[in-house]
């Protein structure tokens, strides 16, 4: 299994919206390389014919009836907002598109 480069860490940090500093990139790249080296052993089973387990319990079909439950009040909904305006969450300008 190949190791992880500083550039890859920078790319992953962008995907994960983490504005890492240069020294962090260096630091994490080394550590992540070690960790990935250690966890890569799971891929020993990659070719084995074993079904994956995504849920620890074999539950299926857990659903709720289509019945309205009380919502929060707008005041409660907005109570943690860093900024608000017109009963809406005020956020910095959004780049890109919908």
């Amino acid at each position: 299994m190949p190791g992880i480069t500083r550039e890859e860490v920078a790319h992953l940090a962008r995907l994960a919206r983490l504005e890492l500093k240069d020294e962090e990139l260096d630091h994490f790249a080394g550590q992540l390389d070690d960790i990935i080296g250690a966890v890569a052993r799971v891929s020993d089973v990659a070719d084995e014919d074993v079904p994956p387990t995504s849920h620890p319990l074999p539950l299926t079909n857990v659903m709720r009836p289509d019945e309205v439950r009380p919502s929060l009040t707008p005041q409660e909904a907005l109570s943690g907002a860093p900024a608000q305006e017109q009963q809406r969450f005020k956020v910095p300008q959004i780049l890109g598109e919908d």
Partner: peptide
């Protein structure tokens, strides 16, 4: 429009 906006307001 999104371009040139100073900020946005969100209703969920």
């Amino acid at each position: 429009r999104i371009h040139g906006a100073s900020h946005s307001l969100l209703d969920y």
